[in-house]
Design a protein around this nucleic acid. Sequence first.
DNA 1: CATTATCAAATGACGCCTGA
DNA 2: TCAGGCGTCATTTGATAATG
Length: 378
Amino acid sequence: MTEWREQKLSDFMDFNPYTPLSKGIIAKKVTMEKLIPFNRKIQGYEDAVFSGGTKFKNGDTLVARITPCLENGKTAYVDFLNDEEVAFGSTEFIVLRAKEGISDSRFIFYFAISDEFRDTAIQLMSGTSGRQRVDTEALKRKVFTLPPLPEQKAIAEVLSSLDDKIDLLTRQNKTLEDLAQAYFRKWFIEDIHNKICYKRFADVAEFSKGKKPREIIEEQRKGYVRQILIDTFDTDKEYYTRPEGMIISTETDILMVMDGASSGRVEIGFSGVVGSTIGMFRPKSDFKYPMFLYEFLKSNEEFIMDNTTGSAIPHADKKLIFELEIPYFQEEKIQEFENFALVLFNKRQNNRRQIRTLTKLRDTLLPKLISGEIRVKM
DNA sequence: CATTATCAAATGACGCCTGA
DNA sequence: TCAGGCGTCATTTGATAATG
């Protein structure tokens, strides 16, 4: 029982196991958009009346079975329910559940995001009109070489500890972000006595909009900041692109989504080639307070998002933004805030870098552990 | 040149069938 | 009767053409 064995997947774990939930009952619902590619965590849920869909419990793994969600790696681990609570979700999930005494639920999750499993599943897709789906029955019959339970647990432990650390850093960054914004509001919005005057946003910041990247060449490497990265507050991916003539952001430039549903969303801390739907604000040379400016824009984020222009596609209203009034204080006070916010910002950037490193490490280890190329010392 | 409208592709979910 | 398969419809998205 201590050796890896070839076994049929259906002998190793349950597919769409029977999980009763009556129609008409209100339960937690997880839609496809709540899964992020290669992210263990489910991004929230809503309460809804059950009328159909997949059903699952804590410890189950959800795998998207439809193109392109499967190819993109939408796979998640259910951990937000109470014991024995049943939730439901998209009809396009395959629910994987551990078999008592045979498999470990967390191992199943990591197995499900391994290329070994995913490539097999993708091979088994069929259907017309571009809506291809995995043939679940065929997948069940596939044979894999899998470790015994104690080793599964050890492998899952290694990978989970990395994911736990990533989660922790992500949460910490959220706290740091909230803290900076709270201080900004307290100092410059609530406590308005020491205000000297208002300044127009256009007087302190310059604007440029990103462009579509040109021909890709190997020698010049730059991060490419796209709308999606700002939306998900994700790390920047590296692209090969030719930067001349492009808009290049540094870490202290303020970026805003200009087109589409997320128009108005603000972020800072991304350096790279700015994509065509991203705008960049940079403080003018006589106003050296990017943190102050960022927190100011952030405090207006909702207002900007609620007041977009355009009918078919919403756009962040540049005119509106330029006319925003910035409460202006003594330089010393702004400088003091700037210094404070910079400390928080640097910590956040540091965390981001750590998240990137840990993610890379996890992605390198995962296939080696799942295939048995590297063995965990037992 | 900046802004707005249009376009095509990508994506998600509904809900009709079918077979057990 | 009901769960799940599967095609179709609706919405969102990024890019580009059209417009002032």
